[in-house]
Simulated scan of single mutants.
Amino acid sequence: METTLYLTRHGQTEWNLIDKMQGHMDSPLTELGIQQAVWLKVRLEDVHFDAIYSSSSSRAINTARILSNNRPIEIQTIDSLREINLGLWEGQQIEHIQRKCPIQYAQFLTKPHLYSPIGHGESYLELLERTIPLLEDIISKHKGEQVLIVTHRITLKVIMSFFMKKRLHEIGDMPDIYHTALCKISINDGSPKVVLYDDISHYQE
């Protein structure tokens, strides 16, 4: 009995375009972000999904709506699939953060085991602790089924690190995850196999 998870990041947003940090804050999808979701929708249109889960952030929900492609399935929105909470960095330009907090920002990207959020944000370990139990619950509920999950850049990277058996300090060495890039996990007899990671072969430009 094979369980298959299809996981993706939301499409490009207006704040992505101007290098502004989002985290739990939000901004609308750009025209390109909508197009990225449409490209992935076409790629997945022949896949039967038994369930669709999305982060409760609107950029993820709107991506999930496009990907659902009028399937008669309710999109289940889950707070635990939201992006890592970036504390005081949310809503700030990346260039400003790099100037003010060069060490912390470098650790955020490349040394997650050392990164400590400024303000009421989350560490990578806290992100793992809120996402992995949810993934285990989804797998338990949907044995033998195919599930689509729409989330965010760092959240998806952390989820994939779990399935790839990466340790916390190794997450910074993992390849980045692009907008609407597809990850795929197949699970047989409780053993997960990474079939796809950050696959953007559906991009048309």
Rank of each mutant, 00 (worst) to 15 (best):
L5Y: 04
Y6T: 08
R9G: 03
R9Y: 03
H10L: 03
D19Q: 12
H24K: 11
H24L: 09
H24A: 08
D26K: 02
L29C: 09
Q35E: 15
A37Y: 05
V38P: 00
V38Y: 12
V42L: 10
L44F: 06
F49M: 07
D50V: 05
A51E: 10
Y53V: 08
S58I: 08
A60D: 04
A60Y: 01
I61R: 12
T63N: 07
R65P: 00
R65N: 13
I66S: 04
I66A: 05
L67Y: 05
L67W: 07
S68M: 08
S68V: 00
S68F: 00
S68R: 15
R71Y: 03
I73Q: 07
E74H: 09
E74L: 10
I75G: 08
I78E: 15
R82P: 09
N85G: 14
L86A: 07
L86N: 12
G91N: 12
Q92N: 11
E95A: 15
Q98L: 11
R99H: 13
R99S: 14
K100S: 13
K100N: 11
C101N: 14
I103Q: 14
Q104G: 01
A106I: 00
F108K: 10
L109I: 10
T110M: 10
K111P: 00
K111Y: 11
K111S: 13
I118R: 05
G119W: 09
L128H: 10
R130E: 11
T131C: 15
L134E: 13
L134W: 10
D137T: 13
I138R: 06
I138P: 09
I139W: 04
I139K: 10
S140K: 14
K141I: 04
H142P: 08
G144P: 05
G144K: 08
E145Q: 15
Q146D: 05
V150G: 04
V150M: 02
T151N: 03
H152M: 06
T155R: 01
T155F: 00
V158Q: 04
S161A: 15
F163K: 04
K165Q: 14
I171N: 09
D173A: 13
D173Y: 11
M174D: 08
M174S: 13
D176T: 12
I177R: 01
I177T: 06
H179Y: 06
K184F: 01
K184V: 03
S186H: 05
D189R: 10
K193P: 00
V194H: 04
V195F: 00
D198G: 15
I200Q: 07
H202K: 09
Y203W: 12
